[in-house]
């Protein structure tokens, strides 16, 4: 069975979940040399409403393009958490902002104050998604920091390169501290 690493960013429209998905897909797919499929799911509303982006990363071509069981969930709302119930792998990680979400589904929770770190590092609440990507670059075995930085800079609006870089660093530093606490080997199982 082909090893797949599956990620979901989920929240409401405007929180940057689709951008986060695209940057992660580019980091893994273009700069990291992996196969990627990135899909979206959102409602018909112009503003607000459920929005999620999903990324499947694999060393082999990807058949089914949607996640089967999540390795990593980044919920930006409480509802996003509820929707992911039962979808996590046993060794899946929930990268969670305790200021946004209080009740968590089953799974190992990496508590990272994404919004607070974003404000501290860049002065912008909207950068929480980029902070999350910084954390993912230390937690996901198929993406490295350099790839993430390249991909994020490629998608950063003019004048925000440095803010993106600071947000990634902030997320990365925080994740570094909790990485040692992950109670399982976080690596994709090799092809059999």
């Amino acid at each position: 069975m082909t090893a797949r690493y599956e990620v979901r960013f989920s929240g409401t429209g405007g929180q940057g979940v689709v951008l986060a998905g695209i940057i992660l897909a580019e980091a893994a797919g273009l700069h990291g040399g992996q196969y990627v499929v990135q899909t979206v799911s959102y409602g018909p509303q112009v503003r607000g409403g459920m929005s999620s982006a999903e990324v499947v990363i694999s060393e082999r071509p990807i058949d089914y393009p949607k996640p089967i069981r999540l390795d990593l969930l980044v919920p930006f709302t409480q509802e996003a958490c509820h929707q992911a119930a039962g979808l996590m792998k046993e060794d899946g990680i929930i990268l969670l902002d305790p200021d946004l979400v209080s009740e968590t589904p089953e799974g190992w929770v990496a508590s990272v104050p994404l919004t607070r770190l974003a404000v501290e590092a860049t002065g912008r609440v909207q950068m929480a998604n980029i902070v999350a990507l910084g954390a993912i670059s230390r937690l996901c075995p198929l993406v490295d920091e350099a790839s993430m930085l390249d991909a994020a800079k490629g998608r950063a609006p003019k004048g925000l390169f440095e803010a993106f870089e600071r947000a990634l660093e902030a997320g990365g530093r925080f994740a570094e501290e909790i990485r040692g606490k992950i109670p399982f080997e976080k690596a994709p199982t090799p092809e059999d």
Binding site: I22, A25, G29, L30, Y35, V36, V37, Q38, T39, V40, I62, P65, K66
Partner: peptide
């Protein structure tokens, strides 16, 4: 919609 909105390398 899946194929139209899907991104792949």
């Amino acid at each position: 919609e899946v194929v139209g909105h899907m991104r792949e390398n």
